[in-house]
């Protein structure tokens, strides 16, 4: 479904963040992306989300070379991808409920049709009593869970999660991991970027490890 071939990435004139990175993300697969801080996990996810173009190499998404994708096609392709940003990116003037419902709203769906789905998902991530809270009054972990719910709500074909458990306790982290596995079982390919070893030990999944600009894959 997603294929990287000899991808290189450099910011400006600095040394390459990624060098000769090749891998595939098959449909319905589950993988961790790990590596030390600053190794380039977020950068790799940005490439996967098409918000960055590689300096070298080729990337194909859903069977299409991203170099050939037109500007106006991007929103439609992005609808097939769910992202949990490391810095959440919630809209502060909207309630938790509305933030999670936003992807459905911009797709022109009717609130009557998704209202219970959104509430169910928020209940699942433990925010059933915070439906009408605004992000500025939420804790870091709560914001993170809202961001996760927003990424999941439309059952994307690919989920890209950048440190999705960075702000929650181990119990909640396990719970969120279960949510990702659940989503994976229902057909979504999942990439979880994390340096939480404890989290990775709970699942026997493929590990993509970034180190010194290189990517090694185990499993």
């Amino acid at each position: 479904m997603i294929k990287f071939e000899n991808v290189g990435l450099r910011y400006g004139m600095e040394t390459e963040v990624l060098r000769d990175v090749s891998f595939e993300i098959p449909e319905r697969s589950f993988q961790f992306l790990t590596g030390p801080s600053g190794a380039g996990k977020t950068s790799l996810l940005r490439l996967l989300f098409m918000s960055l173009r590689p300096t070298r190499g080729s990337i194909s998404m859903f069977g299409r070379d991203i170099a050939s994708i037109e500007r106006h096609e991007l929103p439609i392709l992005r609808r097939r991808i769910g992202v949990v940003f490391q810095d959440f990116r919630l809209l502060d003037h909207m309630t938790t409920f509305e933030n999670v419902a936003l992807p459905l709203r911009v797709r022109g769906k009717d609130e009557a049709d998704f209202r219970s789905d959104v509430s169910d998902l928020l209940n699942w991530v433990g925010l059933g009593d915070k439906l009408h809270a605004l992000p500025p009054v939420l804790s870091g972990g709560e914001k993170q869970r809202v961001a996760i719910a927003r990424a999941l709500i439309d059952q994307p074909e690919v989920l890209l999660a950048d440190e999705p458990t960075g702000n929650v306790d181990p119990h909640m982290a396990r719970r969120l991991l279960r949510l990702f596995l659940e989503l994976n079982r229902s057909g979504t390919a999942v990439v979880v970027a994390t340096h939480d070893l404890g989290l990775m030990e709970q699942v026997d999944a493929r590990r993509m490890i970034l180190n010194n600009s290189h990517l090694d894959i185990y499993g």
Partner: peptide, 17 residues
């Protein structure tokens, strides 16, 4: 979490932000 739905559906206002 289904028990909470009835309540949340009522309180979700008709007019979105």
């Amino acid at each position: 979490p289904m028990q909470m739905n009835a309540e949340t559906q009522v309180t979700q206002s008709a007019k979105p932000t």
